[in-house]
Amino acid sequence: MPTFDNSATSTQLQVLARAYSATGSADYAEAFYRGLQLIFQAQYPNGGWPQSYPLRGGYHDHITLNDEVTADILNLLLDVSQQTGDYAFVSEAVRQQARQHFERGIALLLLLQVDTGQGLTLWAAQYQHRTLEPDSAGTAAQAWQPPDLATVCRNRLQ
């Protein structure tokens, strides 16, 4: 099951882009484009990404900010959209797609950021992808990542 957790997928795409830049082998470029399409397809309409894709239910479907899931994807999309370094080979059409997905991801981050009344602060680690409510990772019996500090802060400051 493909995952974005702990720098998975984004790291492999970086390696494929570097391999294409070094060798010019079309196989590397094709694999890179397939992986990038997976990232495009996995993005929710609201701009977030699940922990893994295709969706499999439970916390894996939550919009995941922790474990660098969203940051890694956004950094990759920004580099692709700017055609920097090893991404110079990316077509203009794909570059524009990457830019659109990047902008949707940033818009969601701005929407989710907690406002304490004294300014914008932090985020929860995971969010329900439909309601955008903070949620835990794991099953009810093993919730090792409960709704986090952002939720606690929001509740305490109201």
Rank of each mutant, 00 (worst) to 15 (best):
V15C: 04
L109C: 05
A141S: 07
N46G: 04
P146M: 00
L36Q: 00
T84P: 13
L111E: 12
Q41A: 07
Q12L: 00
I63R: 02
L111S: 13
L132K: 02
A125F: 06
A98H: 02
A140H: 09
D5I: 12
A93T: 15
A124V: 03
L55S: 02
Y44D: 10
T23H: 06
P2E: 11
T70L: 02
D115A: 12
G57T: 12
F102G: 03
G35D: 12
G47L: 14
I106L: 13
G35V: 08
A143M: 09
A71C: 03
T70Q: 00
R34C: 07
N75K: 15
W123Y: 09
Q128T: 10
E133Q: 08
F40A: 03
T9P: 07
F102R: 02
A143I: 02
D135R: 10
T3S: 15
I106T: 02
Q82S: 12
R95K: 15
R104T: 11
L109R: 07
L77G: 00
A22H: 05
G105V: 03
Q96C: 06
T9H: 14
L13W: 00
A141W: 14
R130Y: 13
W123Q: 06
R104E: 10
A125Y: 08
A150F: 11
N155G: 08
Q145D: 06
A140E: 09
E68K: 14
A141T: 15
L78I: 01
D72P: 08
D86I: 07
T139K: 12
L120I: 05
S81A: 07
T84G: 11
Q14D: 15
Y53A: 12
Y20P: 08
D148C: 05
F102H: 14
Q51I: 00
P147H: 01
Q14I: 13
T131C: 04
L38T: 15
V15P: 01
A17I: 05
D5P: 08
E30P: 13
Q41V: 03
H101K: 04
F40Q: 11
L120R: 10
Y87I: 09
G85C: 01
Q128Y: 08
E68F: 13
V90C: 07
T139A: 15
D5C: 13
L77S: 01
Q158A: 09
L109G: 02
A137G: 11
L65P: 00
Y20A: 12
V80M: 12
E133F: 03
A22G: 04
L132I: 09
R130G: 15
L149P: 02
A19P: 08
S10G: 09
Y20H: 14
G47H: 15
A150P: 08
